[in-house]
Amino acid sequence: MPTAMPSGAPDRRAVPGPGVPVEPRRTPAERTAPRRSRIGLAAQFVLQFVYIPLGILVAIGFVVLPFWAAATSGSGGGGSGTDLGDLARILEGLARSAISWRRLRTEWSGRPEEWETFTERLLTKRFSRAERKSRWAPHELSPSRVRRAVTHLWLHHHHGLAPTRVEQLAERHGWSMDWAKSTVVKDSVGKFANR
């Protein structure tokens, strides 16, 4: 039974002819992430002023409530509630979900030039922090004298750039993307190591 094609619609199964340019397939490392909707961006930016303070109150409540319950019940124990490490992870997650004004403007425009400026600024900060934390001072080096610093960059910080372009930005600073440990292809995080 033949398949019906709407009149005037091109047959996508047909092979393009000699005069039709064919766009080469890009690998996942060469593709940019899909652009976010402007309505979603605006909603997240406005609502973050509600859900972040509420999240902080709830997180503090999970830490304080077990101690308060134990104190009022007279059992004398400290309770087995959430510890401060969990509180720190919750607060870090809330901070990561926030959108700065600069990031909102960058995502709103969606232009690669603006993403490049935004991402390079962020990479510069991350690289200098990683170098400070990884004991790069000559008197702090290990006996092997090997210097290795590692940092990461979440997808939402380079959403409008292809991972290969982010790697080129990192190479300007003497860093390279660690493709073996990176999950950029899965839209998660890029890991960078100093050369």
Rank of each mutant, 00 (worst) to 15 (best):
A170P: 00
H156G: 13
V150A: 03
R121T: 08
W101A: 14
R132D: 07
G93Y: 11
S134W: 05
W154G: 13
G110C: 12
S176E: 14
E116S: 01
R96F: 08
T151K: 00
E140T: 13
E140P: 09
V166W: 02
W136V: 03
F127N: 02
L141C: 09
S128A: 15
A149V: 06
A130R: 00
L169I: 03
W154H: 14
R135S: 10
E113Q: 08
I99G: 01
W154T: 09
R135P: 06
R129L: 15
L161N: 03
G174Q: 03
S142N: 08
L123Q: 08
H173G: 07
S144A: 07
H139F: 04
E114I: 10
R126Q: 12
L123T: 11
L141V: 12
E116R: 13
S176K: 10
A149N: 04
E171V: 06
A170S: 01
V166T: 01
L104D: 00
W108D: 09
H156N: 11
V150E: 05
H156P: 14
L94P: 03
A149R: 12
G93W: 00
G174S: 01
H139Y: 09
E120H: 12
R129S: 14
S97V: 04
K125H: 13
G93I: 06
E167T: 11
P143S: 11
R102V: 12
A130Q: 04
E171P: 05
E116T: 12
W136M: 14
E120N: 14
P163L: 15
H159L: 15
F127K: 05
G110F: 10
L123N: 00
W108L: 02
S176Q: 08
R103L: 15
R121P: 11
R105D: 08
H173D: 03
A95Q: 05
H173Y: 02
A98H: 00
R111G: 03
T164D: 11
W108Y: 01
L94G: 11
R172D: 07
R96V: 12
W101S: 06
T119Q: 04
L169G: 03
R165E: 09
L161D: 01
P112T: 13
D178Q: 05
D178Y: 05
W154Q: 12
V166K: 01
R148Y: 04
M177P: 00
R165H: 05
W136F: 11
K133H: 08
W175P: 00
P112H: 05
R147N: 10
S176A: 15
G174W: 04
R105P: 03
E116N: 07
L141F: 09
A95W: 08
H157T: 10
